[in-house]
Simulated assay, not measured.
Amino acid sequence: MTHYIIYFNQQWVGDHGDEWFRERGPLASAVVDEMKDAGVYIYAGGLEDISTAVSVDATNGSLEVSDGPVAPFEHHLGGLTIVDVADDGTARMWAGRLAEACGWPQEVRRIF
């Protein structure tokens, strides 16, 4: 089995009202429950607002910690799911299920 990360950037979510999100939550939770039942679930979760990010950088030889994200605001991770499945096709299937349930695109990549 191989681990895959299925994730989305917050900007892919779009602008929706509270009611829309309340309707989508149970759909996404149902897919996660199906992953658990299938024995492929490792982890799933959304991320706190980007304003809570802290950057840690040691590329200049000393450790620098600063408030805020490393990436520009328009490119930040919104949430992720990690699955342990047999092949690319199965990972894509779960990514598709999440995309349908959430209502926004998902990207899937193999973890090595």
Results as ranks from 00 to 15, higher is better:
D33C: 00
F21A: 06
Y7M: 06
V13K: 15
E107N: 05
W20K: 06
V32C: 12
W94H: 02
D49G: 01
E64Y: 01
L80V: 01
E74F: 03
L27N: 11
V85E: 15
S55W: 01
F21L: 07
V40C: 14
A30T: 13
P72T: 11
H16R: 14
I50P: 07
T52L: 00
E107M: 07
R22H: 10
A91K: 08
I42V: 15
S55P: 01
G96P: 05
G89M: 08
A91E: 12
Q106P: 02
D49R: 01
T59W: 02
R92N: 05
G103M: 11
M93K: 12
A44P: 10
Q106F: 13
P26L: 03
V56E: 10
S66Y: 03
L98W: 09
T81K: 04
D37C: 07
G78L: 01
L63M: 07
T81D: 12
W20G: 00
E23T: 04
P72Y: 09
G14Q: 09
I82W: 01
G78V: 00
P69R: 05
E64R: 04
V108G: 11
D88F: 10
R97C: 02
A101Y: 10
E64F: 00
V65M: 14
I5N: 14
A86T: 09
Y4V: 05
A58M: 08
R109S: 12
V13I: 08
T52S: 05
E23A: 02
V65S: 15
Y43F: 04
D49W: 00
S55H: 02
P72A: 14
